[in-house]
């Protein structure tokens, strides 16, 4: 009986897939399990722990990253599907190490950060809003996928407006 159980309990063979993708501007290669999520690839394989897991079901937005420039919840993205694509995480928003994106700076100076767990996702979506030419007023709708339980969103909105102003000035 013990042996039977052992057989039954053994996990089925999971194939591994080789993928190449660009993460924060750098070409990277990985060999991952077929069922790997992009979120786990980033956190566990690439060591980019800035992307957070808050629900694992695409409901909270803490794992938001840019995939070819578009915000996506990385807990719902199959890593294998990212072969040949470009991913930007919160660590890469500023373009180079030690540099912050204007929205990240604005979140700091406008008090838009509290517990910080939603913050990487908020920063990524906010950067996409600004890059996509949206008006800051659309922020309320476009940020709705990034749940925040601390700030009441008010100072995130102020930060988005301030960053939009900065981006406009720089253009």
């Amino acid at each position: 009986m013990g042996e039977d159980r052992r057989q039954a309990a053994r996990a089925p063979e999971v194939e591994r897939v080789r993928i190449r993708l660009t993460i924060n501007g750098e070409a990277r290669g990985f060999e991952v399990a077929a069922g790997r999520r992009l979120l786990d690839l980033l956190r566990d394989d690439a060591g980019l722990i800035g992307t957070k897991e808050g629900c694992g079901a695409g409901e909270c937005g803490a794992c938001t990253v840019l995939l070819d420039g578009k915000p996506v919840t990385s807990c719902l993205v199959l890593a294998a599907s990212c072969d040949g694509h470009a991913v930007t995480t919160v660590e890469g928003l500023g373009g180079s190490p030690g540099t912050m994106h204007p929205f990240q700076r604005a979140l700091v100076t406008h008090g838009g950060v509290q517990c910080g767990f939603c913050t990487p996702g908020v920063a990524v979506t906010g950067a996409a809003i600004l890059a996509g030419g949206h008006q800051p007023a659309e922020g309320a709708r476009l940020l709705a996928g990034n749940l925040c339980r601390c700030t009441g969103y008010e100072k995130i909105f102020s930060a988005l407006e301030a960053a939009a102003e900065e981006v406009r000035r720089d253009e």
């Binding site: 399990a33 077929a34 069922g35 790997r36 999520r37 786990d40 294998a80």
Partner: peptide
């Protein structure tokens, strides 16, 4: 955590 599939093919 990985989703429980064994294989991914990419046509």
């Amino acid at each position: 955590m990985d989703v429980p599939v064994q294989r991914v093919v990419r046509p």
